[in-house]
């Protein structure tokens, strides 16, 4: 199980983020368990600007090993921006600046000699809308292993593809049509294909940006089961708009509001007994 450190244990580094000034509320501090022991990913003082506009304010948050961390909050609160910091996808956005410290296994990812290609092979990502490449199912999964040179002979690649599809729970459904276009799959299958594609390069962390928002309830349930299975091997951060989903799949939940991290807590505790007024309002559906 994951170890969650009580705030007092880290008093020397006891970060309580001070919110400078936000329209609706003054001086709210991040409360709860932002930090864990031996984090997989640790973020300290992360701020993001899009041009002149600041999207994230001084975020401190760890991702624990074999943990599913849910990021919740109203639209535009910065949860996706935060997620995209971890695999440096914000690099592709013009005028985007990321400050602060983000370390994976203690190595700074924004360091000048950090390699974005190897970072992204360690940190996979699944997007809001399934985005299979216009290729066959096989080629979609083989894409990552091929560009990273992970596969030697042909049958080794076959094994990788089969293993990834099995892990993503898709093998039974597609094993007889691996060489048909991936775009012919249903939405839920496409999303599981994208998950399989991400795990085919054997990453350490998987980032999921509302992976079920375009799916029906049955497909969603399948993905949620899958996320729970994947936790054995990977560290997962998932952005979601569904409180129920957060409650079902995650061990810790972080609540973002207008670019600030308001509260982080053990999921069960957070949903039953939020410590911040803002969190409570959001969870109980009073706004958002």
């Amino acid at each position: 199980m994951i170890e969650i450190s009580p705030p007092s244990k880290k008093s020397e580094k006891n970060f309580t983020t001070r919110l400078e000034s936000v329209d609706e509320f003054d001086r709210v501090e991040t409360v709860g368990e932002m930090f864990v022991d031996r984090p997989k990913v640790s973020c300290l003082g992360v701020s993001v600007h899009y041009g002149d506009k600041q999207a994230l304010f001084n975020i401190n948050l760890d991702l624990g090993r074999n943990e599913v961390l849910a990021l919740i909050g109203p639209s535009g609160c910065g949860k996706t921006t935060f997620l995209r910091c971890i695999n440096r996808m914000n690099d592709t956005i013009e005028g985007c600046r990321v400050d602060g410290e983000i370390k994976i296994e203690g190595a700074e990812i924004n360091h000048s000699d950090a390699d974005v290609v190897s970072l992204r092979s360690k940190v996979g990502m699944v997007f809001q809308k399934p985005n299979p490449f216009p290729k066959s199912i096989f080629d979609n999964i083989a894409y990552g292993p091929r560009i990273h040179g992970l596969s030697g002979p042909k049958n080794e690649l076959d094994d990788i593809v089969e293993a990834a599809l099995k892990r993503a729970g898709l093998w039974e459904e597609v094993s007889d049509r691996l060489h048909t276009p991936a775009t012919g799959l249903s939405g839920g299958q496409q999303q599981r294909l994208c998950i399989a594609r991400a795990i085919a390069v054997n990453p350490e962390v998987i980032l999921m940006d509302e992976p079920c928002s375009a799916l029906d309830p049955i497909a969603t349930a399948r993905i949620e089961e899958l996320i729970d299975d994947l936790r054995e091997k990977f560290t997962i951060a998932i952005v979601t708009h569904s409180m129920h989903q957060a409650a079902r799949v995650s061990q810790r939940t972080a609540y973002f509001h207008m670019g600030h991290l308001v509260e982080v807590g053990v999921t069960d505790q957070m949903f039953t007994n939020p410590r911040q007024r803002l969190t409570e309002d959001y969870i109980t559906g009073r706004f958002g």
Partner: peptide, 20 residues
């Protein structure tokens, strides 16, 4: 979304152009 998907797999820009 296809570009992002490819970049997120760790593909470089020229790989993304060539293969996706």
């Amino acid at each position: 979304s296809l570009r992002e998907g490819s970049y997120a797999m760790g593909a470089t820009q020229s790989e993304t152009i060539k293969y996706v």
